[in-house]
């Protein structure tokens, strides 16, 4: 009898533990299909970013996504982390004009972006962004991989999940596009990626799937630039703790041995 109740409690605990993580999934994707899991170089305890992929992903962001989406939390200097040289980043930054100090007469000035600047936003403010996009606000992408259930899987799925025509029986809103993986399946963003829409310097074939994969990896890096350092340190810390705990167990046994 007691066993039974204990089992109920344990089962309830396990159920709750798993469902808590599932809840948000089931909710966000009320109508949408959950994103199929992909292989990522950065998944798992030992996973690291693939630098070449991050650079390709940054190219896709710069040439495609950046037309509408900001990435305000990322600074040009952070890009050293994806394996670009400081001079290469300086050259990229210099292509953008950002607001400088007001001149001697107090008039606003512009200057080329430098390493210490944020990646420039396409719009001056949210209202401009909305008015340019049919009322829909393109979200900032710096943390998109952490703020969407499924992370990189979701980004990849969303970018490749467009259907040219909505399935029969689905009424689409004005200017909306059908996407298998978006909540309620209607998304304001038109399919952003095109076959060979960008030209990769490393010769990788720029298929839609490849671009989606690369830009999803880049956004995962942008959301969690500390990931590699975190995992490296975590492994060391846990190994240390396991050894220390084993020693503490031996001490405990020895201390208590004269009581038992």
């Amino acid at each position: 009898m007691i066993r039974t109740f204990k089992r109920i409690a344990v089962a309830a605990a396990l159920l709750a533990a798993f469902s808590v993580s599932d809840v948000s999934t089931s909710r966000a994707a009320s109508k949408a299909t959950p994103p199929p899991p992909q292989d990522w170089s950065f998944s798992g305890v030992f996973g690291t970013f693939d630098r070449a992929q991050l650079q390709r992903g940054y190219l896709v962001y710069r040439e495609v996504c950046a037309a509408c989406h900001s990435m305000k939390q990322v600074y040009f200097r952070h890009l050293v982390d994806i394996g670009l040289s400081e001079n290469a980043i300086k050259a990229i930054a210099a292509e953008f004009e950002v607001a400088g100090e007001p001149d001697e007469d107090g008039e606003p000035t512009e200057r080329p972006a430098r390493l210490f600047d944020r990646l420039p936003s396409p719009y001056a403010n949210d209202n401009e962004a909305r008015s340019a996009n049919n009322g829909a606000l393109p979200p900032d992408l710096s943390l998109i991989a952490k703020s969407r259930v499924g992370g990189a899987d979701y980004i990849h799925a969303l970018l490749t999940g467009y259907l040219e025509k909505a399935p029969a029986g689905v009424t689409m809103g004005e200017g909306m596009n059908y996407n298998t993986y978006f909540a309620a399946n209607q998304i304001a963003m038109a399919p952003p990626l095109a076959e060979d829409g960008v030209e990769y310097e490393d010769g990788t074939k720029a298929s839609v799937d490849q671009q989606a994969r690369d830009v999803a990896a880049f956004m995962t890096w942008a959301a969690e630039p500390e990931m590699e350092e975190r995992k490296r340190m975590g492994i060391k810390v846990l190994l240390f703790l396991i050894i220390l705990t084993a020693m503490l167990y031996a001490v405990k046994r020895r201390v208590w041995s004269d009581l038992h």
Binding site: K146, R230, G234, V237, L241, Y249, K252
Partner: peptide, 29 residues
Amino acid sequence: AFGLGVFLIFYFAFAFFAPNYLGHPDNYI
């Protein structure tokens, strides 16, 4: 002290390898 060691392993496993598991994704918006 031994109990603390076991607990820290559990706690740090979350902090280092699943730091956002217990949080809600919307809070990064």
